[in-house]
């Protein structure tokens, strides 16, 4: 399993900010954004691929969240992903009905109206009742699994703030019973992260990593640290931190961690991805509609 850029993608990447670097232009997260740049995605956008997005730590109701949401719609228009997996912290603070509207339904209304489905996992800021919320598609469960509508792919939404023995047993059983080529877990706390604020959750890693290895997981999506990071393969598995959907901790990536393959801690970011056969292509897209990281992961076998 490895990450690489195809020749075609590499050519397109000339138009984007290099992976793992900060933009050289002024990028004050608090300042209103200028008109976004031309979108230059580097995804194959194949007809039969399973297209999805990843979003985390977003539910603030802030202007920046709304601006990134608008970029998500722009990306959708060019790259019609059918679902968004949410890596937690879906609603910060109060969770009254008006908060669901302000922090979720209004910013993502264009996507919801277009038929995009959101599949939530819970973070440490999320109340357990979110599992009943229709638009989070959690089926009333704290942890759950679902198959992609195309390709051989299964997602596993885990609850990482309370990883009790029952959940671990359930997760292994589901991994074992699945014949999907791609098994993609997602949850809030990152087993690997270069965050100065939170960083790697080694206790969680101790429990989950052996299962990822045993059952051929190739890629894991998480949040919690408020930036974007893609790790170098750790025991052949690539870990993404996509925790800047509505919160940003500027300059928080430890440049010396040694595990980083790509990162951005200067702007709000979500990830667009598509699985086609044994390959998963990804573009991390910022609030300025810039592709700040891209590549392709070939699954483990």
């Amino acid at each position: 399993m490895f990450t690489r850029l195809s020749a075609a993608a590499a050519a397109l990447v000339l138009f984007v900010i290099p992976s793992g670097s900060a933009s050289s232009r002024p990028n004050d997260a608090a300042a209103p954004q200028a008109a976004p740049a031309t979108l230059a995605l580097t995804l194959p956008n194949k007809a039969d691929s399973l297209k999805f997005a990843v979003l985390g730590d977003f539910g603030t109701g802030s202007r920046q969240q709304y601006e990134l949401a608008a970029v998500m719609k722009r990306v959708y228009d060019a790259f019609p992903y059918e679902l968004v997996i949410l890596v937690g912290d879906n609603l910060y603070g109060s969770e009254r009905p008006q908060d669901f509207k302000k922090k979720f339904e209004i910013p993502y209304k264009p996507l919801i109206d277009a038929g995009v489905k959101f599949y939530a996992s819970l973070g440490n800021h999320d109340a357990r009742e979110q599992r009943y919320y229709q638009l989070f598609n959690m089926d009333g469960k704290l942890y759950y699994t679902f198959k992609g509508s195309k390709q051989s792919l299964r997602f596993y939404a885990l609850e990482s703030t309370y990883m009790d023995p029952d959940q671990i047993v359930w997760f292994e059983k589901e991994l074992k019973n699945s014949d999907s080529a791609w098994k993609i877990p997602y949850f809030h706390h990152p087993p690997y992260s270069s965050g100065d604020r939170h960083g790697s959750d080694a206790r969680l890693r101790e429990v989950l990593e052996p299962l990822f290895i045993k059952y051929n997981v190739s890629v894991v999506f998480t949040g919690h640290d408020h930036f974007y990071e893609r790790t170098k393969p750790q025991k052949d598995i690539v870990y993404f931190v996509v925790g800047s959907g509505g919160q940003l901790r500027k300059g928080n990536v430890d440049r010396g961690s040694g595990i980083t393959a790509g990162f951005n801690d200067t702007d709000y970011v979500f990830l667009a991805a598509e699985v086609n056969g044994d390959e998963m292509w990804f573009n991390a897209v910022s609030r300025q509609a810039q592709v700040i990281d891209s590549g392709v992961i070939t699954r483990r076998k």
Partner: peptide
């Protein structure tokens, strides 16, 4: 309190507490 995030309870701790 709504403003207080839930603490993570690591699996190693939960394994030692009653279900």
């Amino acid at each position: 309190p709504d403003s207080v995030p839930l603490s993570t309870v690591p699996p190693q701790v939960l394994q030692g507490l009653p279900k």
